[in-house]
Design a protein around this nucleic acid. Structure first.
Ligand SMILES: [Zn+2]
Ligand SMILES: [Zn+2]
Ligand SMILES: [Zn+2]
Ligand SMILES: [Zn+2]
Lengths: 131, 131
DNA sequence: CCTTGATCCTCCAGTAACTGGAGATTGTAA
DNA sequence: TTACAATCTCCAGTTACTGGAGGATCAAGG
């Protein structure tokens, strides 16, 4: 299949597929006579793996590591497991940070009764160092 | 005061202060004879405002808008209020997305009993299209 | 007076992960 | 034939800084 089809099949943009090849997440695809990339079903699976990992927030570099494990069937999976655990922890930290922001933003929003900028609790609240 | 002091006073890196000037969040600071930037107390306040807004996740462009309101004391604050409300909504969306990731990551991690990559629930789980 | 070390200056390149576009081919169908 | 879709290869732009090179300037100590 050509690039457009694998892109559609995996919910990836054509440009992004080419980009993944460029950075080495996908091996350089064999080309047709006229130079078009040709993909096989295994490539779809690999791309699904990549997209899914990216969708879970793994960085490209993390995806690279996960693929390495996936590519070596006999390898101990503990590297992947550690990676996933660490990533989970970072996701949880992000959640906490966003929840803190959320609380402060709710407080700010409550401090606004309308009116002019001078009297606005949002503007005023931002001007103060701490919440 | 010079740039190092305002940076320290606001928890900003010197380079970042210059960057804010470059992109117009801070007005070009007047210079000393030898060309060094000189700041006044009002600049500290402005920088605190910027840093606080950035800390709450507002984009630079949003901060610019907030500053515009703040700079026009008689202006109705509704633009700022809308901005804050919309931003709050986006933060909440991000939280939800991260919580969904978290759930999937927890599921993935549970699916790993150790062993080889072939049998690993993490690798296997990533290969499948849906969770 | 001179030297040191801390600050400051101006560029400029790099980061993450794509995204979109220009300009040129190629493939296909009416 | 003519049109239109899909593909190709560059390459620039996005966000919000961060760090560094190479070169002035300043204050303090000797
Ligand atoms: Zn991660
Ligand atoms: Zn208000
Ligand atoms: Zn926002
Ligand atoms: Zn495992």
């Amino acid at each position: 299949m050509q690039i457009g089809k694998i892109a559609r099949a995996t919910g990836t943009k054509v440009n992004t597929v080419r980009y993944y090849e460029e950075i080495g997440l996908l091996k350089p695809a064999p080309r047709s006579q006229s130079g078009r990339r040709i993909y096989a079903d295994a490539d779809v699976e690999r791309l699904v793996f990549i997209r899914r990992a990216r969708g879970l927030g793994f960085s490209v570099s993390e995806v690279r590591s996960l693929l390495e494990v996936s590519d070596a069937p006999n390898r101990d999976c503990k590297d992947a497991a550690n990676l996933a655990r660490n990533h989970l922890r970072r996701v949880e930290e992000q959640i906490e940070q966003l929840q803190a922001m959320r609380q402060e933003l709710i407080g700010l929003a409550r401090a606004c009764d309308g009116g002019t900028a001078t009297d606005c609790g949002i503007i005023g609240g931002l001007a103060r160092k701490s919440a």
